[in-house]
Design a protein around this nucleic acid. Structure first.
Lengths: 208, 208
DNA sequence: ACCTGAACACCGTTCAAGT
DNA sequence: ACCTGAACACCGTTCAAGT
């Protein structure tokens, strides 16, 4: 099933079809149905394979930083294969590698003084933020690659009425540049700070 | 094209096909191509229509609360039609109603002391969080509706090794209940607090 | 056990032809 | 201007038949 990954890397996972995969593998389309139950099963297998390959970075002892490290690790892996994130939410987040992130975040949140129930809320907020970042940015960059020019949205923003939308229009020209910046970690830090409160270890020093 | 909305409400927007829409409208499939350029154009028209219908709640004067109100309004509207959020990220977030939310958040962030550039970062973090929440929860509930029983993931979590995943397994039984709770606003408040600093109502100093 | 072609019930889209 | 059937190039999936 390495052929599947090759096709996905080239054309994106939405373009993967049973028939094309068969052709790439030099086999009849119907043959694949001896190895997979249906197309959904094929994607699930690819998902599990990829999930096993996620990296597990070393973890800082400070709970805040540990959450940042775990979330950033997942984020980095998923950014490399955005199709993975899309299958992930279309399907489900499982696999030991993904669970390792959940475990790390829950543990750190509990250590930071949350109840287990609150820790689940912390994890969920982080996952929503992370999944959203991946999905929105992946589809934006795919669209940009297809278009090879300003998107419909960029043009839309430039055409807005400055009286009705003063703040948006004041950054309209800069929007593409600002939107292209990677602000995942900055946002993540804000989120963790807001959810867990100010880090006692770092409250004395200045904070970004 | 109210027929399209009827079909989407019934079967979900992924199931909408040009041919079925034609049948529902009592017309030949090819006829539709006089009103739309292609299927993507059809979805874009539906998107613009729906965006115009978004509600615009009254806004509190406090910048923090104004951001919460704007984000929650968008979140409420999108929750009602999750397909809208999916088209939205597959396509693009435009329309005056959506821009109104952007404008509101940028204005409030600037009022809270951010530069216009930082205000864009605040908006982006909120949008990632909101879009992620909608998309993850929409696909989870759709999956649950299809399955009519515990999901693959629920079972997976229950089968985890307690030694390797102590925190996850300690809440494993409660997971479905915890995951079903609506924690959007709580997470959003944490995010805003973390991004903008402590609520000025509780401390007059602007930090971070 | 593994693979196959034929077939079924679908797709989006084009195009020449009708009113 | 509006609508049409025929046609093309695709889909996922089943199934009886081959080795």
């Amino acid at each position: 099933m390495a052929a599947a990954r090759r096709l996905i890397d080239r054309d994106g996972w939405e373009k993967l079809t049973v028939r094309k995969l068969a052709a790439e593998s030099g086999v009849a389309p119907t043959t694949l149905y001896h190895h997979i139950r249906d197309k959904e099963d094929l994607l699930k297998q690819l998902l599990d394979d990829a999930a096993d390959g996620l990296e597990r970075p070393s973890l800082p002892s400070d709970p805040h930083e540990r959450i940042i490290a775990a979330a950033t690790a997942i984020h980095t892996s998923l950014s490399a294969w955005p199709w993975l994130a899309e299958v992930l939410i279309a399907d489900d987040l499982t696999g030991d590698a993904a669970m390792w992130m959940v475990e790390t975040i829950l543990g750190a949140a509990v250590e930071a003084g949350r109840t287990p129930e609150q820790a689940v809320d912390v994890y969920r907020a982080i996952w929503y933020y992370t999944a959203g970042e991946i999905l929105v940015r992946a589809s934006a960059s795919r669209r940009r690659a297809e278009l090879d020019g300003p998107t419909y949205r960029d043009l839309y923003i430039l055409g807005l009425d400055p009286e009705a939308f003063p703040h948006v229009t004041s950054v309209a020209e800069e929007w593409p540049r600002l939107a292209a910046r990677d602000t995942y970690e900055a946002g993540l830090r804000g989120l963790v700070r807001g959810l867990l409160g100010v880090d006692p270890e770092r409250s004395a020093s200045s904070d970004a």
